[in-house]
Design a protein around this nucleic acid. Sequence first.
DNA 1: CTTCATGCAAAACATTTGCAAAAAG
DNA 2: CTTTTTGCAAATGTTTTGCATGAAG
Lengths: 141, 141
Amino acid sequence: MRDDVKDILRKHDLKATPQRIMVYGKLLELGHASADMIYTQLNKENPEMTVATTYNILESFVKAGIIKRLFSSTNKMFFDINTKPHCHIYTETGDHYTDLFDPKLTEIISDYLLSKKIRNFEIEDVSIEIVAKRKNEKNYK
Amino acid sequence: MRDDVKDILRKHDLKATPQRIMVYGKLLELGHASADMIYTQLNKENPEMTVATTYNILESFVKAGIIKRLFSSTNKMFFDINTKPHCHIYTETGDHYTDLFDPKLTEIISDYLLSKKIRNFEIEDVSIEIVAKRKNEKNYK
DNA sequence: CTTCATGCAAAACATTTGCAAAAAG
DNA sequence: CTTTTTGCAAATGTTTTGCATGAAG
């Protein structure tokens, strides 16, 4: 698994440093996380991990296209290990994303947007965030 | 128009202070803006306008439901004067939103999401951000 | 009057910078 | 070896706090 990560990094012209492997591994573990969360957790496990490095690495990963920067309504940077198109269910508190893989919805939207060219803009990506609140356990069956 | 704003505020149990009227008016003028932009512009026009008050007011407006907090990939707070469902075209730089009122797309998505209840979540709002780059003038007809 | 909003200055966060030292390929 | 990347500490920028003063209803 460590080696798989190394391969992914090298395939994208990123030197496989231990710090990069840690960051990628952590995001693999968490799925979605803020830069801050990633830094805090890694630093606890390995005190030489620094803030600046964490941010550098995340930026380099986004540039390389191996992770995605998320839209958020907080003022923190969030990232997603999954780069394929999918929707998110976003809790009111803004600190948690749940993936919603719904090929049909994704298809409906991309077909529609592609069919309808938007004058003067070239679409690069579409982000769909569903703001929702978790129902309490009693209420669902 | 000043009076219209007063009415909107009072209808939502917000005291119609001059500062609130200014903030609402500015967002009406700009459509979308960051907290920081609103503060900076208002403070230039009226030096007694303060940062804390600007943030307080924006927060109270969101709570009252008369403006919406936007999703963004920068780490700044952005707001939208328009609370009706619509999509945004979001430029790469993240500092500018263009409204895309597309009743059909909005309808497609909300119909789909409503028809398909998501186990365990109650949908409150859906936000669609289309990341795009502006084509240069020469390339569009 | 009473309650709620504002202004101020300081604190708290999150993110970025610049640069020397260290490590990857 | 050469080129990147890391670590550090300080700087930047944005948002939040606490509390006394002032204004709205």
